[in-house]
Computed example of a mutant assay.
Amino acid sequence: MTKPRLRIGLIGTGFMGKAHVFGFTSAPRVFDLPYELELRTVADITPQAADEAARRLGFARGTARWQDLVEDPDIDVISVTAPNALHKEMSLAAIRAGKHVYCEKPLAPLAQDALEMSDAAEAAGVRTQVGFNYLCNPMLGLAREMIAAGELGEIRGYRGIHCEDYMADASGAFTFRHDPAGGGALADIGSHALATAEYLCGPIASVMGDCVTVIQERPDGKGATRKVEVDDIGRAFLRFESGATGSIEGNWIATGRKMQHDFEVYGTKGALAFSQEHFNVLNFFNTDDARGRQGFRRIEAGPDHAPYGLFCVAPGHQLGFNDLKAIEVAGYVNAIAGKSPEPFNFRKGLRIQTLVETIQASSREKHWLDVT
């Protein structure tokens, strides 16, 4: 029986644009999806760049006008991987045209914009997804399952961190990420730490933030410099609704770190430790182990941790970053078909932006703030 087609339009062909394409092309080969996925049109900054991207990435055509995707009745889903400040305009235009929207994080630079986007999507009845694919890791799913089942007992403490060094060089150019409309380290990568914290430990009730701009100015590419007003490091102490406490950090000047998305969870009966740098492993400490035999034990990802087995029948062979994107795409496509809830929709993206802004406000005001 022939499946209906879900036709994809992609805006942007940088790092995350390519990751979206890997997800769209891999997911149908791994999962039994309700649609055939068709790469219809890709938009880039010039006609030449768009045509080259279409050829290279497997789209039927390219265009220099992202509006062409919105206006095309033959496109069902629009992926937005453009700079952060453009997410709102592009997503709202797609929603008005009745398209489903898959937008990379952060959903929008301001929570009020994210709220407008969420309300519009829900009113239009379209399905949305925000790119938080680290949450698709089977090892994070296992950690959440263990916490919910009480294997760690009462959760007392949490530590989360997302550190990279792609902004560590002070001579590096001013980019869209340094623009106040682009966000800063807390919004750009600290958002992942916040999403993981709530995924594992539930809602955060209050925060105490500290956002620091270390590199005060950067070259603008025109022989001058521009003042940097966003944070290079964003930290926060957390109080969860459950009574647990913890902390998170987002840091894009962490020299030597390429992908440190780590967490530790401490309970009365056990603890978990995880590092994205070895993200096919979850480490578990159990207080029931005999004295003299205690220690963190290594749990290797394998077919017992769905959906790992759909990618590989052998344990320990490991998933990769783009496999997580395929898992994210599969969940989203099933939601579009009405087979499951949206995994991480615009409303959830709004929640993360609300947390970011509350931490930023706490840093400015220098006291604890409740998350509303």
Results as ranks from 00 to 15, higher is better:
311 F>N: 15
311 F>D: 01
311 F>C: 13
312 C>W: 01
312 C>I: 08
312 C>S: 13
312 C>M: 13
313 V>E: 10
313 V>T: 14
314 A>V: 12
314 A>S: 13
314 A>E: 09
314 A>N: 04
315 P>M: 11
315 P>F: 02
316 G>D: 08
316 G>V: 07
316 G>H: 04
316 G>N: 13
316 G>M: 05
317 H>W: 01
318 Q>I: 12
318 Q>F: 03
318 Q>M: 14
318 Q>R: 11
318 Q>N: 03
318 Q>Y: 04
318 Q>T: 10
319 L>H: 03
319 L>M: 08
319 L>W: 03
319 L>K: 08
320 G>M: 15
320 G>H: 15
320 G>N: 08
320 G>S: 14
321 F>W: 13
321 F>E: 12
321 F>I: 15
321 F>K: 13
321 F>Q: 06
321 F>C: 02
322 N>Q: 10
322 N>P: 07
322 N>G: 00
323 D>H: 00
323 D>L: 00
323 D>S: 03
323 D>Q: 07
324 L>V: 05
325 K>A: 12
325 K>G: 00
325 K>R: 04
325 K>T: 08
326 A>P: 03
326 A>Q: 08
326 A>W: 05
326 A>D: 03
326 A>F: 02
327 I>P: 04
327 I>N: 01
327 I>A: 04
327 I>L: 02
327 I>S: 00
328 E>I: 11
328 E>V: 01
328 E>H: 12
328 E>Y: 00
329 V>D: 02
329 V>I: 12
329 V>W: 02
329 V>C: 15
329 V>L: 04
330 A>Q: 10
331 G>R: 02
332 Y>I: 05
332 Y>V: 03
332 Y>M: 13
332 Y>W: 13
332 Y>N: 09
333 V>I: 09
333 V>E: 07
333 V>P: 11
333 V>A: 12
333 V>W: 11
333 V>T: 05
333 V>H: 11
334 N>K: 14
334 N>P: 05
335 A>P: 02
335 A>D: 10
335 A>C: 04
335 A>F: 01
336 I>P: 00
336 I>F: 04
336 I>H: 05
336 I>D: 03
336 I>T: 15
336 I>L: 06
336 I>K: 06
337 A>K: 07
337 A>R: 02
337 A>W: 02
337 A>T: 12
338 G>C: 05
338 G>S: 09
338 G>Q: 12
338 G>P: 10
338 G>I: 12
338 G>W: 05
339 K>W: 09
339 K>N: 13
339 K>R: 12
339 K>T: 12
339 K>H: 04
340 S>F: 03
340 S>N: 12
340 S>R: 01
340 S>W: 05
340 S>H: 05
340 S>Q: 15
340 S>Y: 06
341 P>F: 07
342 E>T: 07
342 E>R: 01
342 E>K: 06
342 E>L: 03
343 P>I: 11
343 P>R: 03
344 F>C: 13
344 F>W: 14
344 F>T: 15
345 N>W: 01
345 N>V: 14
346 F>Q: 01
346 F>G: 04
346 F>N: 00
346 F>R: 05
346 F>M: 04
346 F>P: 09
347 R>L: 14
347 R>F: 13
347 R>T: 15
347 R>P: 15
347 R>Y: 06
349 G>I: 00
349 G>M: 06
349 G>L: 05
350 L>E: 15
350 L>G: 15
350 L>F: 09
350 L>A: 15
351 R>I: 09
351 R>C: 00
352 I>N: 13
